[in-house]
Amino acid sequence: MAAVYKTLSSLSSHKKEAEERKYKQRVLILSSRGVTYRHRHLLQDLYSLMPHSRKEAKLDTKTKLYQLNELAELYNCNNVLFFEARKGKDLYAWMSKAPNGPTVKMHLQNLHTMEELNFIGNCLKGSRPILSFDASFEKQAHLRVIKELFTQIFGVPKSSRKVKPFVDHVMGFTIADGKIWIRVYQISESEPGKKKPTADGEMMDLDPALKKGKKTEMDVSLVEIGPRFVLTPIVILESSFGGPVIFENKEFVSPNQIRADLRRAKAGRYNRRTEAALESKIKRGGLGLSTHGGRKKEKDPLSDHVLFA
């Protein structure tokens, strides 16, 4: 009987384990060469917010991104978060499910790291975040894919090794203006009677005994932690860093194009002026003021210039 029980219980526990292992997520975080210090700090911030992530040295190549798949396999990661820096100013974020896709490429703008934001929020390193999504994510297929990727990459799995047991921060993903805005807040609870928390870490100073005894409803407020950034989806590929393009955002204009347009708009002024000058010259010629029938006027033999030369 005992043996039967043992086998049964072991079986069930084994099953449970298997179930848990199913949702295991590990994220490989790395960047390309040529990132600025702000990009590096962002990477650091995200790494500290994601206990299930593995940071890697900068990737040398910007073209052979499929190498990332091997790298992810090497480190046992099933998600890749890759930051590609271009021209030392533009940052692109790639999110991928490592072995066989899909991959999302996004343009990262309006970046503010924790370091420079000076927000007073703080949270445990390794606590699991609540992910808050805008309902617009459910409206379109590509956004659903992106949402799923966000959930798996930024959501810390329960079974992660370095995870801590409390929930004290929330990540907000909102779609506005065709872009995805990301914010991170600390959750601070305080008793209703009490005044607003004094920020830093002191808002937790409530009496646990009182809480247990009366079970009062706590006031929940948020304090921003940082970082802040905005993502514009550009392309979704079917497999991991390769494969056919299954979504392309036509509204995205590359920053290079914007810069070029600006330059060209400036150059346009000069072009217009020179053109106008040329035009007026031709017009004058056509009126016969300085030319005669398309040829230059002959010199008048009686003009002052000739007579008194």
């Binding site: 949702y23 992910l131 808050s132 459910e138 949402k147 990727l149 959930t151």
Partner: peptide, 28 residues
């Protein structure tokens, strides 16, 4: 896109909330 989503999507309906902890707003 939907195929890709289906391939990677976690079975949320079978999971406890505490396993994924993701909330979507009712209204955009």
């Amino acid at each position: 896109l939907l195929a890709a989503l289906q391939r990677i999507q976690l079975p949320y309906s079978k999971m406890l909330f505490s396993e994924h902890q993701s909330v979507t707003t009712d209204e955009p």
